[in-house]
Write a protein that binds this DNA or RNA. Structure first.
Lengths: 163, 163
DNA sequence: CCGACATAGTGAAGGTGCATCACGAAATGA
DNA sequence: TCATTTCGTGATGCACCTTCACTATGTCGG
């Protein structure tokens, strides 16, 4: 019961889902002229409203320098603009253009639609079981520091996201 | 019930899991002196045995040129070597060094261990329900061409023609 | 045996994401 | 006012990935 075999299989399913979903997202984004990183920035901006690059750097957990590059690209493709900060002349406020706002709103809408497609036909109890299971896994991950440690030369967890 | 709200929440769980797992993997890999792409190559090599770069390129779905770069790096860090192909003098056989083989075997072992940690305390029926749910989602994804269809510009009169 | 063509791998060049270091400019605090 | 902190960016550098061009081989139809 609950053989290691089953555990591995379950992890395999999760990993497969990871790969499939990531790929699909990246592809959809590309169709909008966006990359993962740029879309991530847009997403954060959508939830926070006009923000300084510093704030975005912290939110995306990347270096401020990198934000400069991402914003440069988004400005060039007319998704956002750099507005002067009303009180801090050092800072700039990254703000949506109309185009950027429209795209981002549409992305959010489509995400809900996507969720509907995935779960619409699933019985309530089944959906609940799935979510419970996922929560369980998430909790277990957190309990284990999520960082499986991995240090030495012969002890490493996980491989690549390659199914 | 089965409100759109629940659907979105479920998708949120999945996405969170994706992020957490990916981060953890990348971090563990880095501890071994590996990157995602290089580990992926090693993983494939582990399952296929000595392979030509062409085969690896197809397996990883990247350009042959890119494989050259990845193998260069793995050779430099003593994970693999390039051996002459026994019958085709154009090709090279990418082969594990002892170090590479040890690391990869350890990675596989640790993946099973990781699966055990995640699911060991989970009741059988709960685990089964989780796997079933994941399979369901995976199937639904495939059925829908796995394409989110993404947000189209601003032509959003809910023209859900695109699934 | 021999061209015609397909294939394996790599040099060259370029785009994107990311990081660190150094720096100027503006904000802040004592 | 002066030291310190903070914001954003130029300069560099690494990793991943692509396409194009090119060499060395393998293969196949005559």
């Amino acid at each position: 019961m609950t053989s290691p075999q089953k555990h591995t299989e379950a992890l395999g399913r999760i990993l497969e889902l990871v790969v499939v979903l990531s790929d699909d997202m990246t592809r959809s984004l590309a169709a909008q002229g966006l990359t993962d990183a740029r879309a991530h920035l847009l997403w954060e901006l959508h939830h926070r409203g006009p923000s300084t690059q510093r704030v975005l750097a912290d939110a995306l957990r990347v270096s401020p320098r990198n934000i400069t590059g991402l914003v440069d690209a988004l400005v060039a493709t007319d998704f956002v603009t750099r507005e002067p900060h009303p009180t801090d002349r050092r800072a700039t406020l990254v703000t949506f253009t109309e185009h950027g706002a429209a795209i981002t709103t549409a992305m959010e809408r489509d995400q809900h639609e996507f969720a509907r497609i995935l779960f619409a036909d699933m019985p309530d109890d089944r959906l609940a079981a799935l979510v419970d299971g996922l929560d369980d896994v998430l909790a277990r991950l957190r309990a284990h520091g999520v960082s499986i440690d991995a240090a030495r030369d012969d002890t490493d967890p996980e491989s690549e996201a390659g199914r």
